[in-house]
Nucleic acid binder design. Structure first.
Length: 581
DNA sequence: GCCGTTTTCGGCCCGACTGTTTTCAGTCG
């Protein structure tokens, strides 16, 4: 596990223990925030060893947390955490993970009936101990039992590659319900996060009852978690929770903004509103007239509510695209121009039947052409990728000839002869230079030795970045989301070298990879790197994975000028040629 | 615990829903 992850877990744990022991809630939140900030750091926090000033310069980290971080980097532990851990029974904080159990209830379980772990909770439900507690009725106990059962079968957060199609299918179904005028998804899905905790839907309807009924009785619904006048929650059979909010058309922007989040972005906007003598909630931005109760309930006319753009404008802030609402920047800072899917004109990483793809060469080219691309690169695997039917030198030479022949017949699209060549464990490439030099495009990717040390990974990847014949580093860390951590190289060193050598780093758009990840993209953009967004297509439908790469790119503030897939053909081909003898 | 173009002290977002209990606490997002 990376140092960042370990340290973030420490702060998360500090927050949980403080919460259960009844500490000040703001202190709890401050520790949670530190955990999040550390987890989001693109680089290894070890680089800040001994650097208290640098640490406190990071938003959310104050002097106290900086000391704890330095202690951890120095000794591998945090004494405050050890002290806190000794104050609560082992397993107690695990109870916070049970949906429906919050800090207050966990504390009561501990102190009133000595339930201090998930196991003990199950026993206490079984033997009736729980029923003896005040405010612990049959329904509450049944809900806890259900949550425990759910926890056994549910795994990690849902990947965006699964969540987005589910949301779109739900929207298609619900849009058909009579009275529904508008329905969209919000939440972390709209922000394009790589994994999703739950799906948030927002609807405008003339008949809320009909929509709520239809929603809660969809065949894929396993359990109804809540059904109110404006909000319903269900759990689907696939385990994912879906929240549906019904709002009025004239407040749709405020609601969309509110439910898109992130929570931190909302807080920043609210604080901004308060400073301007206003109040912001999911119904709109209101003048603060000092009256009792909520402005919407008193019929106060909002300053802005109908669209997100109206609200940002009224707050005198630039409009933030959903992907940039993680509150990693000051809200007053104008977002840069971002890449858009319509600007992509080239796919630079794709496989054919020659290695492990399912498309013939003409089929691959047809997919690219149907999307209006000016360039498609054929990049089958190299010889070391035996499991992927990688090409021997002889097979690659013949493959190059085939690609060149097809290319010569086509006027409207350029077909590049390339390879996705393995970066071996020590940084050497899988083909000799004279063969690589014959290719129009070389993507160098790590496929093996993905558990090597950070130092080895850094020098391995640096060697590939600096190789004069390499254009793009494919999926640089080799991670698979929720499955394989992949390499943890010194990203700051990588992006610096890549910028200097004009070697592009890839955002592999496959939603299982998204590698570079958003924080790495951000670092690369800041360093002035070239970035490629590639689908790594093995089949025709893989071309549609591009949108996941775009979301990640936008979350990393990537603009069209640094994204080589958006370049006009001339500029792209010129850059490719510049790396040829 | 963190933060400051009103502040180095005194704030720190706000509403919906549930379950339980008769007016609200707890959880969630």
């Amino acid at each position: 596990m990376s140092t960042n992850r370990q340290l973030a877990d420490c702060f998360e744990r500090i927050a949980s223990i403080l919460e259960v022991t009844g500490a000040n809630g703001f202190k709890v939140n401050a520790n949670r925030r530190v955990a999040r900030v550390i987890k989001d750091l693109p680089d290894d926090i070890s680089s800040h060893a001994g650097d208290k000033k640098g640490l406190t310069a990071i938003d959310g980290i104050g002097a106290g947390s900086a000391d704890k971080i330095l202690e951890f980097l120095d000794t591998g532990e945090i004494s405050e955490l050890a002290e806190l851990t000794s104050q609560v029974p082992d397993g107690l904080v695990d109870l916070l993970d049970v949906p429906g159990l919050g800090p207050k209830t966990v504390r009561r379980l501990w102190q009133e009936v000595d339930v201090t772990s998930i196991e003990k909770l199950k026993l206490a439900i079984g033997d009736g101990t729980l029923e003896s507690m005040p405010r612990m009725g049959a329904k509450t106990i049944a809900n806890i039992a259900d949550s425990l059962k759910f926890m056994e079968t549910s795994g990690d957060r849902l990947g965006i590659g699964k969540a987005l199609p589910i949301a779109e299918a739900l929207i298609t179904q619900l849009a058909e319900i009579p009275g529904v005028e508008r329905i969209e998804y919000a939440g972390s899905l709209r922000r394009g996060r790589e994994t999703i905790g739950d799906i948030d839907l927002l609807a405008v309807t003339m008949d809320p009852d009909a929509l709520a009924d239809s929603f809660t009785t969809l065949p894929e619904v396993a359990k109804i978690l809540a059904r109110g006048a404006t909000k319903c929650s269900v759990r689907l059979q696939r385990g994912v929770q879906v929240d549906l909010r019904m709002v009025s058309e004239d407040a749709f922007g405020a609601a969309l903004m509110y439910f898109t989040g992130s929570k931190e972005h909302n807080v920043a906007l609210r604080e901004r509103a308060i400073k301007a003598g206003q109040r912001l909630n999911e119904y709109g931005l209101y003048p603060d007239d000092g009256g009792e109760g909520t402005p919407q309930s008193r019929g106060v006319t909002p300053v802005a509510a109908a669209s997100e753009a109206d609200i940002y404008k009224a707050l005198q802030l630039p409009v933030h695209p959903p992907e940039l609402r993680e509150q990693r920047d000051d809200v007053e800072q104008s977002p840069p121009p971002l890449v858009e899917i319509g600007l992509v004109h080239a796919e630079l990483h794709a496989h054919t039947r020659a290695s492990d793809g399912v498309m013939s060469l003409p089929e691959l080219v047809e997919q690219a052409r149907s999307r209006g691309y000016h360039t498609i690169a054929v990049t089958d695997h190299s010889k070391s990728s035996v499991q992927a039917n990688g090409l021997s030198e002889d097979r690659l030479r013949k493959h190059i000839d085939e690609v060149r022949e097809l290319d010569s017949e086509l006027k409207d699209i350029r077909v590049l002869a390339g390879s996705e060549v393995d970066i071996l464990a020590d940084g050497r490439l899988d083909y000799e230079d004279d063969l690589l030099a014959q290719l129009d495009i070389v993507i160098a990717s790590p496929h093996v030795a993905l558990r090597q040390s950070a130092d080895k990974a850094t020098s391995r990847l640096l060697r590939a970045i600096r190789h004069p014949l390499v254009h793009i580093i494919g999926h640089p860390t080799g991670r698979i989301i929720n499955k394989r951590e992949g390499l943890s190289p010194d990203m700051a060193a990588l992006v610096e070298a890549a910028a200097e050598c004009r070697t592009a780093l890839e955002i592999n758009a496959n939603p299982l990879r998204l590698d570079l990840r958003d924080t790495h993209v951000r670092l690369a953009v800041g360093a002035g790197c070239l970035v490629a967004i590639n689908t790594d297509a093995h089949s025709p439908e893989d071309f549609d994975l591009l949108r996941y790469g775009l979301l990640t790119a936008r979350r990393g503030r990537l603009g069209p000028d640094q994204c080589i897939n958006t370049w006009p053909a001339d500029r792209l081909h010129e850059w490719l040629s510049s790396k040829r003898p």
